[in-house]
Simulated assay, not measured.
Amino acid sequence: MKSNYMTRAMVHPDPRFAVILGKMGYEAKVGSASDDLAALRTEYQNIVGKRAFHGWSANDLREKIEAAKSGQ
């Protein structure tokens, strides 16, 4: 995901940024994606026994988890 001012402002700990940008028509889609990515990283660590590389996307992690489950 490309990081720009809007994406950084939407995930800022101060909720005022999200409220203002929400009124301007921007949606906070980043929060659920980051929660999903954190869950995938935890699942990867439980299955493989090593921590996931932070440069991997959610799709990359899903592929690696499936490969580990199938024994490849």
Rank of each mutant, 00 (worst) to 15 (best):
V48M: 04
R62W: 01
E27P: 06
V11N: 01
S32D: 14
G25M: 04
G49K: 07
S34E: 13
T7I: 07
V30H: 06
G55K: 08
Y44P: 00
S70N: 15
A52N: 04
H12Y: 08
R8Q: 12
Y5E: 08
N46L: 14
S70G: 11
K2W: 03
E43F: 04
R51H: 10
A28Q: 10
I47Y: 02
L40Y: 01
M24K: 14
A39T: 15
K69E: 08
F17E: 00
A52M: 06
D35N: 13
A67K: 10
E27W: 00
E63C: 09
R41L: 05
I47S: 02
R8F: 02
D36V: 14
V48I: 15
R62H: 06
F53T: 10
R51L: 08
A52V: 08
N46M: 11
Q45F: 14
Y44C: 00
K64D: 08
A39C: 09
V11S: 03
V11R: 05
M1I: 10
M10Q: 00
R62I: 11
S3L: 15
G31Q: 12
D35P: 04
W56A: 04
P13K: 14
G49N: 08
Y26Q: 06
S70E: 12
M10D: 01
N4G: 15
K2L: 09
A33L: 13
N4V: 07
M24D: 06
D35T: 13
G71T: 06
R41G: 05
K23F: 09
